[in-house]
């Protein structure tokens, strides 16, 4: 069985580093860590990840929701949103993104793995 590719979009490098550690320990391959939405879109198209872990509030006023929608406009990919404030997510604005889940910060390690598995269908 080949490892599922994971892309992390998170502007806090420490959180991104931890997520990478957790996911790799769980047997996933973290193909790329993006700190900005622009960067995420560029690499998503090239890497075609199986799942994206997405922070909702990105630096330079970047929106994780917006990035997920645009990526899903190119190809369908499940998204696990991690946010400090659940109210920031307007589910009505998610039109392209059909498969997603929302988690609050700070997320529990087991829940991350469980939700990623659920989203990628393991």
């Amino acid at each position: 069985m080949t490892k599922k590719n994971v892309m992390i979009v998170e502007d806090e490098v420490i959180i991104a580093l931890e997520l990478e550690m957790i996911l790799e320990r769980a047997g996933y391959a973290v193909t790329h860590i993006s700190y900005t939405a622009e960067d995420a879109m560029k690499y998503a198209e090239a890497d075609r990840p199986d799942i994206i872990i997405m922070d909702v509030m990105l630096r330079d006023n970047g929106s994780g929701i917006d990035a997920a929608e645009r990526i899903n406009g190119m190809f369908a990919v499940p998204v696990l949103f991690i946010t400090g404030n659940r109210k920031l997510i307007d589910e009505n604005s998610l039109k392209n993104t059909s498969s997603y889940y929302v988690m609050s910060k700070p997320p529990c390690e087991n829940d991350i793995i469980k939700n990623v598995k659920m989203l990628v269908g393991d």
């Binding site: 959180i15 400090g84 404030n85």
Partner: peptide, 24 residues
């Protein structure tokens, strides 16, 4: 207040991440 709340949660996340990384 909303921003601070967000920041606090973010920072707590950073701290949990740091502790998790450290524990490794």
């Amino acid at each position: 207040l909303k921003e601070i709340h967000h920041r606090v949660k973010n920072n707590l996340n950073v701290i949990t991440s740091l502790l998790n990384l450290q524990s490794d």
